[in-house]
Structures are given as structure tokens and as C-alpha cells.
């Protein structure tokens, strides 16, 4: 859909997006995500303009039901997580076919920073950084406690099914990487049993969090990989070194310590999780990230995305290996 046509459709919708909403301005594409578009725009009103975000499925792209939920279901999940106490952007409107925008929803724009490198380094965030890991634990406890009809229809994944999925992809690439082979073998032998599936965000990491310089964690974004699964999956994923932005010494997102994360989780009512189980999912997280790097390179190699960026991401598979090795050695 062309930006002009999208702006026109959003303008028709404006009265429902903001009180006395009149026209839409400053429509800007924010990211070129593979399965979703994100647009920022403003709705002009007699008072101040209202800043909003549109999440939209590109035309012609059929979502993989094994991986991602429909956007209306994603919007319902975000709203349910918000009711359970997690900071999320308010969902303003879920689009219907009559809106002429396609599969999409509109949410509030939350003030703050999403770029992980700035969150871990800039002085502006120095005051909120020390409390951020504990707050992440509290927020994950709230997400994992969501009990809502919005969970119906979500896929369930445990360590074993994740290993099956990613090993199948790895085999298909034809790669011969002994560290990944060892990862599949060792993590399979130690796969924890999923006793009680909970709502797992699925991509809870520095980069998908909006952090405000004064208010700290202001919103959790990117719910498209949400599923039912092991609570330690989210706790381990935010510890993967690839999103510590150089701060190897701060295991939680490059800003905090695992102890604070787990304390915050338990204090907010989360069923206590052992550091070993978190380390297991951190290792599985690095392994998954390594396989994702191989897939993204594939899209370059097949010509689907000929950008130099896609090519170079394939060279990040070794970063996953170097993070995975000590974790495997510690469990050997």
C-alpha cells in the first residue's frame, strides 16, 4: 500500500483514533520488519496532535501460523498483558476490512528510547539503569500470570519443540558448524520438562523495550512471537549476550544482574526460577540466534534480499557460537 493511500485511509479513520481527530500527518515508516510494517503518524485535533503507531501486515504476505498470531490476536494479547499490569502501549483501534488498511491495529506512541546501545551507554539513562533488571523481572512475572481468553489459540512451545524447529532449519541450510551441533546435542539431553505453560512474550530483550530516562521501563513491544511456554524462556532470552550491546559484564540486557531479574520476578509473584534454568534458556537463545543469522544470510544467498546488510548478518553466526560455548562447557 502506497503511503498516500495509507494516509488517506487513516484520515478517514481519524475521528475514531483521537477526539475530534481531523487529518493524519507525518506518516513515517519506522521499520522494515519481514512480517510486519510499523508506521508512526500524528492525528491532528483542535488541541495538540496525538502521536500514534500503526502495525500492519504487508499485502500478499501470509503469516506463518506456526510462528506468529494474527494481528487482531496480537492486539488482544497486548491489551490483556496491560490489564495484568505489564507496561504496554494502549491499543486504540483494531482495523476491520471496512477501514481499507488491511490487517492492522493502531496503538499509542509511548515516549522513550528503544535503541539498546543508547539505553546501556547514555548518561541520560544512568539514573534508571540500576533498577531496570528488577523491573524486567516484575514485568515478566505480570506477563507470565496473564490468564485471559486472548491466550486461546496460541501455540505451545517447550525446549524440545524449539530445538526440533531450529535444528530442522539448521539442517536445511546445509551448514556444518560443530558448536551448533554440540548445542543441539547437549541442550536436547538436558531439555527441561514444561510443567505449566504460561504466556511467554517470545522476544523480550533490550531493543524491544521502551525505556524512559526518568520513568524507566515504559513499554514492552513486539508481541508477534508470543506463545505459551516455559517462563525461563523470557528470562534467559534477555540475558543473551547479543543484546547486551558490549556490556558483557551486565547479563540482563547490558544493564543489570541476573540476581535482580530473578528477585524482581519472585517478588512480583512469579514462580521462582533457578539460575541454571535461565542459563539453559540463555544457551538455547544463543543457539536460536545463530540459526536465525544463517536463515537471514539464506535470504541473501537465494536473491530474496540482496542487501549487503543481509549478507553481513550471516557473519554474526560466530558471535552466537562464542557466547554458546562457555554456557555449554559449564553444563558439560
Amino acid at each position: 500500500m502506497e503511503p498516500d493511500a495509507l494516509a488517506a485511509a487513516l484520515t478517514r479513520l481519524a475521528p475514531r483514533l483521537a477526539p475530534d481527530g481531523r487529518a493524519v500527518a507525518r506518516l513515517t515508516r519506522l521499520s522494515g520488519g519481514a512480517s510486519q510494517e510499523t508506521w508512526a503518524f500524528e492525528v491532528e485535533t483542535p488541541a495538540a496532535p496525538v502521536s500514534l503507531i500503526l502495525r500492519r501486515r504487508p499485502e500478499g504476505l501470509q503469516p506463518d501460523p506456526e510462528r506468529t498470531a494474527a494481528l487482531a490476536a496480537e492486539a488482544a494479547l497486548i491489551a490483556a498483558a496491560g490489564r495484568a499490569g505489564a507496561p504496554v502501549p494502549a491499543v486504540i483501534h483494531v482495523c476491520t476490512p471496512q477501514d481499507g488498511i488491511g490487517e492492522a491495529y493502531v496503538m499509542a506512541r509511548v515516549e522513550g528510547e528503544t535503541l539498546g546501545a543508547r539505553i546501556v551507554r547514555q548518561d541520560a539513562f544512568a539514573a534508571v539503569r540500576p533498577g531496570l533488571a528488577r523491573r524486567c523481572g516484575e514485568v515478566l512475572a505480570a506477563i507470565h500470570a496473564v490468564d485471559d481468553p486472548a491466550l486461546e489459540g496460541l501455540r505451545t512451545a517447550d525446549a524440545r519443540s524449539e530445538l526440533d524447529r531450529y535444528e530442522a532449519i539448521y539442517r536445511e541450510t546445509g551448514a556444518e558448524r560443530p558448536v551448533f551441533e554440540l548445542g543441539f546435542r547437549m541442550l536436547r539431553a538436558r531439555a527441561p520438562v514444561l510443567e505449566r505453560p504460561v504466556l511467554v512474550h517470545g522476544d523480550f530483550r533490550n531493543g524491544n523495550l521502551i525505556v524512559h530516562p526518568q520513568r524507566g521501563l515504559a513499554a514492552v513491544l513486539d508481541w508477534e512471537l508470543a506463545h505459551l511456554g516455559d517462563p525461563a524462556e523470557d528470562l534467559g532470552w534477555i540475558c543473551v549476550n547479543s543484546w547486551r550491546f558490549g556490556r558483557h559484564d551486565k547479563p540482563v540486557g547490558g544493564f543489570g544482574d541476573t540476581r535482580d531479574l530473578l528477585d524482581g520476578y519472585a517478588a512480583a509473584g512469579g514462580t521462582p526460577v533457578s539460575p541454571e534454568r535461565v542459563a539453559y534458556w540463555q544457551a538455547l537463545g544463543s543457539l536460536k540466534w545463530g540459526v536465525m543469522c544463517l536463515i537471514m544470510y539464506r535470504s541473501f544467498a537465494t536473491g530474496a534480499d540482496p542487501s549487503v546488510e543481509r549478507a553481513m548478518i550471516g557473519r554474526r553466526a560466530s558471535e552466537a557460537e562464542i557466547d554458546l560455548l562457555p554456557l555449554l562447557e559449564a553444563m558439560a
Binding site: 560443530p178 558448536v179 560466530s318 557460537e321 562464542i322 557466547d323 560455548l325
Partner: peptide, 21 residues
């Protein structure tokens, strides 16, 4: 593990020598 550590470190020195890992 000794072999994998050395081989992986060599590869990261090519791919991303500044990587914290």
C-alpha cells in the same frame, strides 16, 4: 572444547573483532 574455543575465537577475530564475547 579446547578445539572449539580456538576455532571460534579465530572466526570471530575475522567476523567481529570488537565483539564482547
Amino acid at each position: 572444547f579446547e578445539h572449539l574455543r580456538l576455532a571460534t575465537a579465530d572466526q570471530v577475530r575475522i567476523d567481529q573483532p570488537g565483539y564482547s564475547g
